[in-house]
Design a protein around this nucleic acid. Structure first.
Length: 581
RNA sequence: GCACCCAUAGCUCAGCUGGAUAGAGCGCUGCCCUCCGAAGGCAGAGGCCUCAGGUUCGAAUCCUGAUGGGUGCGCCA
């Protein structure tokens, strides 16, 4: 139930009535008519811009339309007052009953209150993490993982059929490097002295892989040339790394639906098929690229290559799909991968990349646009840098990986819930400061704590009610008479609850899960404010000594707050706290 | 040189398909516990939304340009 959508429907119905009465011309478009919360609470509960939007096409004065509209709206029992203000806004004041019903709805629907059918079951593929299988996940991946996962949950909550997907880059040269690095660890496990030169991965995480391999193979591969062991070792090593990565994801609570292997595209004709599709559309040609202006590489020389005419689909230059040695560029399998996604029948694709892949956005969009004939939108979300701090000092170290901080370093220290919430306290395209101490602080400054504390307070008051002999289970609260919830401080909280379904839709439409985290912070603030009002105004306390009925209606409101917090945290993948320790 | 992202209070940041007097936290000033958990709350001060044009009844929001910062730029993924 989205109250704002309901009232908008009422506004549109009233406009139609005006048309029938001849007060408005026929055929007006209502697309731009909005009903939203006013910025200033003094302006009422909701405001509509209908009169201003329609004034010009209708050839009427905004205030005249607004006044006519106001008369019709006031006839509805939900509307307590409608006032024309400013240039033609219509400010609506709603009956307390409306807000009481919001509480009742939240309780009866539980964490499904806020679910939307705006997605209409559309199939959406969210690809995220997709880290190279060459080592454990680091902090940058962590942000992408949390963002992608929360986005996927959000879209599902908003009525989409979501697939969570991880693209394994197991086909390129970096896998050879991995295999050689493991080979060194293998020799080392057999007692040899080895040196990790440039171009190998020196991280400790390969030691157990080398040891396991030594146990399995004995000295069979010692002093053998690459062509004896490289291919088998590639598979062995990537499997080991993917097992590592899956553990990392599990530690964070991320579960993928599909792991898609890049390697599966090679030698199976799938890359060729994707490029044949582009070729059939006249988008593949042999040509020579201009050198980039202003920054010509030292060794630049004109070369004829096989190019994808991505400029036809919004890119700045055409992109090579084949290297000069005839092999595929990294772009070719990516095209084939997205071709596969398109052919699996998704209605929309979302890729989550690190910000350092920003230069890759246009060509990928061009590819999907070309492959799908413009029918499948691809949105690419970039996650910005995470800067780590400890005691206010920049923090850089890793026990296991050498030069980067791993996902495990973070999760092991602060836990998955804190990690996830904090990663969503900035919008994805803004850099994020992560302070190991601050995120564990129990204070207003720490949004994780602040929201959890609000939920814990609700749970606490419910427990106390039981002690005081007041029944406060969900079934009882659902049936409670809420007519007593009329105080402005209480109505305020109910109004915030009414925004939840609307916020879900906005966040889902913009693919911005951080909005959920910010909303929860606001809801918690309103709840804490009400809680403290009880210090002075005893009639606002949730437990009213000796008055079960009044207590139950107030606790129904509190419980509704915790229901929405649980729903919101659920989308973020965070477990609500029952009590603070 | 080109592309993308960013620029909002002293600091860190929100700001909805364009809406009314631009918000929060921190910091600063002053308050609130014999009282449901003060791990919290209330109030005050603090802004030319980087700048200049444009579109609009209306712009922090959309467009163009400038300035400042970040990222990237043919056989690395």
């Amino acid at each position: 139930m989205n109250l704002f959508a309901n009232i908008r429907t009422l506004v549109l119905d009233s406009l139609e009535t005006l048309v029938r009465e001849g007060a408005l011309p026929e055929g007006l478009s209502y697309d731009n008519v909005t009903v939203e919360p006013p910025r200033d609470a003094a302006h009422g509960d909701m405001a509509t811009n209908a009169a201003m939007v329609l004034a010009k096409p209708a050839g009427l004065k905004p205030r005249d339309i607004a006044e006519a509209l106001a008369r019709h709206l006031e006839a509805d029992e939900r509307i307590e007052g409608a006032e024309v203000a400013g240039p033609g806004f219509l400010n609506l004041r709603l009956s307390p009953v409306v807000w009481q019903e919001v509480v009742a709805t939240a309780l009866s629907e539980g964490t499904a209150y806020g679910r939307s059918d705006m997605g209409q079951g559309k199939k959406v593929n969210v690809e995220y993490v997709s880290a190279n299988p060459t080592g454990p996940l680091h902090v940058g991946h962590t942000r992408g993982a949390v963002f992608g996962d929360a986005l996927a949950s959000l879209l599902a909550y908003a009525g989409h059929d979501v697939t969570r997907e991880y693209y394994i880059n197991d086909g390129g040269a970096q896998v050879d490097v991995l295999a050689r690095s493991v080979y060194l660890r293998y020799l080392e496990a057999l007692g040899q002295e080895v040196a990790f030169e440039d171009g190998t991965y020196p991280g400790d995480y390969l030691i157990p892989v080398g040891e396991a391999l030594a146990k399995e193979k004995g000295d069979a591969w010692v002093d053998q040339p690459e062509d004896v062991w490289l291919e088998e070792l590639r598979d062995y090593a990537t499997d080991a790394m993917m097992a590592l990565i899956r553990e990392d994801l599990a530690a964070l609570g991320v579960e993928m639906d599909v792991f898609f292997s890049e390697k599966s595209l090679y030698g199976t004709g799938r890359i060729e098929a994707a490029l044949a599709d582009l070729e059939a559309k006249g988008l593949i040609y042999e040509g020579v690229l201009e050198p980039p202006k202003g920054k010509t590489p030292e060794d630049w020389e004109p070369r004829e290559q096989t190019l994808f005419k991505s400029t036809e689909h919004g890119d700045d230059v055409d992109r090579p799909v084949k290297k000069s040695d005839g092999g595929w560029t990294y772009f070719a399998p990516d095209i084939a991968y997205h071709y596969d996604k398109v052919s699996r029948g998704f209605d929309a694709l979302i890729d989550v990349f690190g910000a350092d892949h920003g230069g890759y956005v246009k060509r990928m969009k061009a590819a999907v646009s070309a492959l799908s004939g413009g029918s499948v939108p691809l949105d690419i979300k970039l996650t910005q840098l995470v800067r780590l701090f400890k005691n206010g000092e920049p923090f850089k170290m890793s026990k296991r990986a050498g030069n980067f901080v791993t996902l495990r370093d973070v999760v092991d220290q602060v836990g998955p819930d804190v990690t996830r919430f904090v990663m969503l306290t900035r919008k994805n395209d803004a850099p994020l400061d992560f302070d190991f101490d601050k995120v564990l602080e129990q204070s207003r400054e720490n949004p994780v704590f602040y929201v959890q504390y609000a939920n814990a307070r609700v749970m606490s008051v419910l427990r106390k009610a039981a002690d005081a002999g007041i029944v406060a289970d969900d079934a009882t609260l659902r049936a409670a008479d809420l007519a007593g919830l009329t105080h402005e401080a209480e109505i305020n909280v109910a109004k915030k609850l009414a925004e939840w379904p609307r916020l879900v839709e906005i966040a889902a439409r913009t693919n911005e899960p951080h909005r959920v985290a910010f909303y929860l912070n606001e809801l918690a603030a309103d709840f804490h404010a009400l809680w403290n009002r009880g210090n002075d105004a005893t009639e606002l306390r949730f437990i009213q000594e000796g008055d079960s009925a009044a207590s139950q209606s107030k606790m129904a409101l509190a419980r509704a707050v915790s229901v929405v917090i649980s729903a919101g945290l659920g989308i973020l993948g965070v477990t609500p706290a029952q009590e603070m320790r």
